[in-house]
Amino acid sequence: MNYNWNWSVLFQEPYLGWLFSGLQWTLLVAIAAWVIAFVLGSAIGILRTVPNRLVRTLAAAYVELFRNIPLLVQLFIWYFVVPELLPEELGLWVKRDMPNPEYVTAVVALGAYTAARVAEQVRSGIQTIRKDLVNAGLAIGLTPLQTYLYIRLPISYRIIVPPLTSEFLTIFKNSSLALTIGVLELTAQARQIENYTFQGFEAFTAATVLYLVITLLVVLLMRLIDQKTRIPGSVGAN
C-alpha cells in the first residue's frame, strides 16, 4: 500500500473547523428530526391502537408508505417535488425565501421517515400491555383517554426506551443522507477533506471516531434513563 500518512492534517485549519462544523450540523439535523419523529411517531403509534377502524387504517398506511420507500428517494421528493405540489404562493416562498432550505428539508424528511419507525415501537409497546390491565383501569372508572394517559403510555414508554434509543442512533446515522442535498454534515466534511488533501484515511478515521464517540455517549445516557425509568420487577430491572 502506497500512502503518505499525515495525521496532522486533521488539526490544521480549515480542516479541523470543517470537522467540527460537520459534527455540529449532524447533531442539529439529528436532534431536530428526532423531535418531529418522536412527536409525530407517538401520535401515529397511538392512533394505530384506537378502536376506530378508519383511523387505525390511515395510521397504518402512513407507516407502510414511509417504511417502504428508501429514505434517499423520500429526501429527493421533499426537496425537488414537494415545493412544486404546494399551493403556488407557499411553493414560491419555500423555493425562494425559506431560510436554509437544505437543512429544513433534511429535518422534515428524516423526521417524517423516522416517525413511521417510532410509531411501530410505540404501537408495539402499547400492545404488549395485557388487556385486563387496561380493563383494571376502566373498572375503576377511568375513561379510555385516561387509560392512555395514566396506564398505557406511562408503561409503554418505559418499555420502549431501548428500542427508541436505537431509533435515535439510526436517525443520527441517517442524518448523513442530508449531504445528498448539500448539507455539509460530518460525512460530507470528511469527504471534502479527502477531496482537498487526498488524506482520505485520516479524514474518514476522524469522522468514524466522532460517530463512535457520540454513539457511545448516547448509549450511556440512555442506559441511565432506562435504569431511572424502568418499572420495578420488569425484565432486567434490579
Binding site: L169, K173, S175, L177, T187, A190, F204, T208, Y211
Partner: peptide, 21 residues
C-alpha cells in the same frame, strides 16, 4: 463499530480504501 457509523461513510471508506489496498 459498523453499527455505529452511517452506511454512506462506509461506502466512502471502501470507495477510497479498496483501490488503495
Amino acid at each position: 463499530i459498523f453499527r455505529s457509523i452511517p452506511l454512506i461513510l462506509v461506502i466512502f471508506w471502501f470507495y477510497f480504501l479498496v483501490p488503495l489496498l
